[in-house]
């Protein structure tokens, strides 16, 4: 157990990193909501929001869920289904004509 424990815990980020990540997450959320209310951004709202939320997603998964520091097998076993889910969502939107009608 001790070997495994050491291996698994040396990877975790420090409290400072956690706080920094939390700050970034908060800022991104504020930007998201801000962008939502600015009429000028309306034409590019969707891509902006998708990029911002993907960034938040990545931050939480990499730092809070430690994937950045952990064994790559965990990343593999998570990202393969995640990619499948993404592919399925895109394919379904295409099949139901979402990209044609806009």
């Amino acid at each position: 157990m001790s070997d495994t424990a050491r291996h698994e815990h040396q990877g975790h980020a420090s409290t400072g990193t956690y706080l920094a990540v939390a700050a970034v997450l908060t800022i991104i959320t504020l930007v998201e909501v801000g962008v939502f209310y600015v009429p000028a951004f309306q034409p590019v709202l969707v891509p902006i929001l998708l990029v911002l939320s993907a960034a938040k997603f990545a931050l939480v998964v990499m730092f809070y869920m430690h994937l950045k520091f952990d064994h790559r097998l965990f990343t593999l076993i998570f990202s393969l289904p995640l990619l499948l889910a993404l592919g399925v969502a895109i394919a379904l939107l295409f099949l139901f004509g979402a990209f044609v009608l806009g």
């Binding site: 495994t4 998570f78 889910a85 969502a89």
Partner: peptide, 30 residues
Amino acid sequence: TGLDSRKLAFWAFIGSECLLFGSLISTYLV
């Protein structure tokens, strides 16, 4: 692998949950 079995199982579970929420979100969007 030197990895804890429970943690590995839980990551597999989270992968599975991706498909659950993926289907729900896709349906909402469709």
